[in-house]
Write a protein that binds this DNA or RNA. Structure first.
Lengths: 146, 146
DNA sequence: GGCAATCGGAACGAATCGGTCTGATTTGAG
DNA sequence: CTCAAATCAGACCGATTCGTTCCGATTGCC
């Protein structure tokens, strides 16, 4: 129940991009890496995936770079996670294409997984990049959940 | 963003246990494995973890077995996930004891992760074992989210 | 006191994830 | 028009984690 560190990096990179003129200015992966501390090769890899998912527009060549393809308020955490890790499927049952579950017919829990899936995805879709890029959080958010 | 297959198995096992006399009758790992299709060694391992987490009471020796330590309605999906996978921490930042994040001070996203964490955990805590063990789901729940 | 059955922990193998390197493509200057 | 610099894009390799399997410790019955 932990999202990969690549996803964490992706959020950091996108937040940094969003903070620069609201993401309208053209950035490149190298500068984003320097600014955030994310290793450059990793940042390049993430840029590729995010571009493939349509979250950012990338332009090659000298003077090229990347840019958010949508306003930060319309990019949700669920979008970012799906772009980096693939579809949000809590169990293999839910993921289309994986029907090799040994339990199969006996599994009486399977019908409930989709509801769980939607609940989690809904929670993630409620967080936008605009929120994540905000400078300071409310004090209550600073408290570490023990 | 997918919970491990062990967690999936744990939910199946606990649901099966809950269905037998509301979990009051004493079951053993072998029978649960036969009934659900979960491999026996895996079921045994899960029983150990669930017992260590206090979700079930286990008794060794001939005629021993396991039993839910609480009513199914008071056991949430979040409890099961934490028992099998450990604390629900979406990022390494949130998990206490892991402070080796290379970004550290520069990371302006970190304050927001706890809020995300609580949102996801809240969604999981809203699903109880009693719900998961119910025989049939509403028709809308059967629809696969493409 | 011996035996059988059960849970509990430790070791092995496999798969996925993260990081690095090299190549293809485009723009700008000369 | 040609060359060169800069950028994104894809392929390879090592490392960590996950899942499985096997063996030992403990308990109750005979």
């Amino acid at each position: 129940m932990r999202l990969s560190s690549l996803t964490d990096y992706a959020v950091v990179l996108l937040s940094a991009a969003a903070r620069h003129c609201g993401g309208l200015a053209r950035m490149n992966a190298t500068r984003l890496a320097e600014e955030t501390g994310v290793p450059l090769p990793t940042a390049q890899k993430l840029v590729s995936r995010l571009a493939a998912a349509g979250l950012i527009d990338s332009t090659r060549g000298t003077g090229g770079g990347i840019r958010l393809s949508r306003p930060p308020a319309t990019i949700t955490l669920a979008d970012i996670i799906e772009a980096v890790e693939g579809p949000i499927a809590m169990t293999a049952c839910v993921d289309a294409g994986h029907h090799d579950c040994g339990i199969a017919g006996n599994c009486r829990v399977k019908p409930h997984w989709n509801a769980v899936n939607r609940a989690v995805r809904g929670a993630l879709a409620g967080v936008t990049l605009a929120t994540l890029a905000a400078e300071a959080a409310a004090p209550e958010m600073m408290k570490v959940e023990a």
